[in-house]
Design a protein around this nucleic acid. Structure first.
Lengths: 204, 204, 204, 204
DNA sequence: AATGAATGAGTGTTCATTCAT
DNA sequence: CATGAATGAACACTCATTCAT
């Protein structure tokens, strides 16, 4: 019996996931504001009413999407930072490693990132606030790296500003990369990005 | 008679402007999609119907806003680039001068820039496309600067990527600056930004 | 002074007339429901507000139009009937004379007739009622002619029905004639119409 | 499954029909232009939004009404004409039979006919054009009858004019009959109508 | 769970009418 | 008288959400 419940719960979670994935691709195509519940359910191959068996509102989907993304970003950043901190490797290699991690993440979740960075501003104010919170958290993690780099001998810059520069640069470039459908060679992009940021931060 | 006509036309233009400015601040506050015509006209101190004496639709306002901004950006970039090209000054000073020009522009049109960079993605697909076109033009202008810097002795990078890095960085940082309500000292920001980008691009 | 007032009144009447004529041609073109006050005033070469110096509402124009038409129709019918009654001529000639009078009237007021017969039904209920009243009056006049014809030796039909037949036939045919832009030869039309109606009513 | 689908489709068609019938009676009462979607749905006992599950616009209803009527008229006329052609009966009986067919049709669809003949002119230009097309087709069918009557020995008239006379007469009289709420005895009306038209067309 | 018809508040837009100049 | 900007009620249509089956 308990097994049965578990099974049905797994199925439920899968269905919920199907809706999220469907939402994602429709949001990407039409934008959040121009996406109708009907579009999502059509994509998911089910009916409008059924959507409400899994979500209590249209907003819940976007909230789930965003929370998932936020979690992913933060945990990824922390994970990468731990590597950064614990390994005594030349900064340039460490940063490259870091960026490769980012690249992988952006590639895996490209649609979510596009929605997050391109569309979230057009939604309700609360989403804009949420987005900025996430960006701030990201910047905060980056700042720790900058501080680390200063220990490694970087010029004495305002770490807050430099962290913000890094954040803007990394996100802007990767978003552009996604939008261009990954046209550019990943390694070349990372190489160039690392080069500018590390040299810009460290060279005397 | 002709004078009178002119006068009424000036008044008409002023009224139109009032609507644009009102729209701007409401869009900024509520987002384009959550702004009602009534919000705009209330801000402008007039009636709903009167809005349609000046614009044929809600969309027309956003189109006017965006075209105006696009023109401003492009012309400003060109103007600054001409200065950059025609004056034999050290690159770091030239770039600083360039960034000061940007800063001034961003400050003067901060609300429009926020709408452009934060909300436009959430609108119709056509606006996303338009936005990317404008960004591409901007990047193209920046690329000319990078090429110039290479002539000045920069490392041999892929100017397309470096231009994109610059674009992302500058826009990201300035948008953040606007959003933080210009909390940071302008000169410090410019100093730091120039430092990272020029050193990141030029140092061996 | 009194002369001056008179003069200004004449001018006022002329202006009113200009509006009525303008209305007519716009109603004909766009239909009453799709005609805007602006269309009328544009045609009249004046401004929207000025319209209300001459009429108290949009409805007043249609009322003036319709009353004028009703008066014209009724008086014309009476006039023709007097001729019919007072002249001892063969019925067929009298009817022909009658129809020639109608034809002239329809030609002179073709636009008004089209509005009356084609559009009035689409307006408010009260106009439909008014239209039917006018038609009834018309039929009542025709009935007097039928009665006269019976005195002349027509078969014994129900004069109410036959009058209605005549009314429908005459109006239907003339409206068609107007709509076809008077393509058909007037005399041929009258000849044929008279022929059918008189023979249909009188021959044993 | 297929049975279920069929059933739901039948229900859907019935609902659609309910809307059409409701529209009809409201149009008849208030006129197309003065009918609000709310009036229709109130009559149909449902909500405004639901109307749009069955029709894509207010216009679609009128289009359905008109197409249905046009089809009905044309097919009825053809059917009656076939009877007319294939049976060697005295013309007066044949015409009477024809008119009885018309009368039945007018009675069955009286509301639609009223809308068609009284209101369609007040709608958009395209509807006026459509109406005239239908009238022309009707006249064309009548013309064939006139030609037949000429073969039977009618005077040599211009069949186009005589057909138009018949059309105007028949429609005008029946519309009047509907409007008077069928006050007049059907048989007497038909008798009289036939008498005038056939004698008017055939008598030497 | 699944369906999709039903609901109705909400929104952009129109346009007759008013009124300050 | 003439002008045309200003007013705001009214309406067609949309769509998130509910609910009977």
């Amino acid at each position: 019996m308990s097994l049965r419940v578990k099974k049905s719960e797994i199925i439920k979670k899968e269905k919920r996931n199907l809706f999220i994935i469907s939402s994602l691709s429709v949001f990407e195509e039409k934008g959040f504001n121009n996406t109708r519940i009907k579009d999502i359910t059509k994509k998911a191959g089910t009916s409008v009413g059924n959507f409400y068996n899994y979500f209590k509102s249209k907003e819940e989907v976007i909230e789930v999407l965003i929370s998932g993304l936020a979690e992913l970003m933060i945990s990824k950043f922390r994970e990468l930072f731990v590597y950064f901190k614990e390994n005594r490797i030349p900064p340039i290699s460490a940063v490259k490693y870091l960026f490769r991690g980012y690249a992988k993440m952006f590639k895996a979740k490209s649609e979510t990132f596009l929605i997050f960075f391109e569309q979230m501003g057009g939604m309700d104010k609360k989403y804009r606030i949420k987005r900025n919170e996430i960006l701030d958290k990201f910047t905060y993690e980056v700042e720790k790296i900058i501080v680390k780099l200063i220990e490694f001998g970087a010029r004495d810059q305002n770490p807050k500003i430099t962290a913000r520069i890094w954040t803007s640069t990394v996100l802007g470039v990767f978003i552009w990369w996604i939008r261009s459908d990954f046209e550019l060679e990943e390694e070349e992009l990372i190489e160039n990005l690392t080069d500018v940021l590390v040299k810009g931060t460290m060279s005397k």
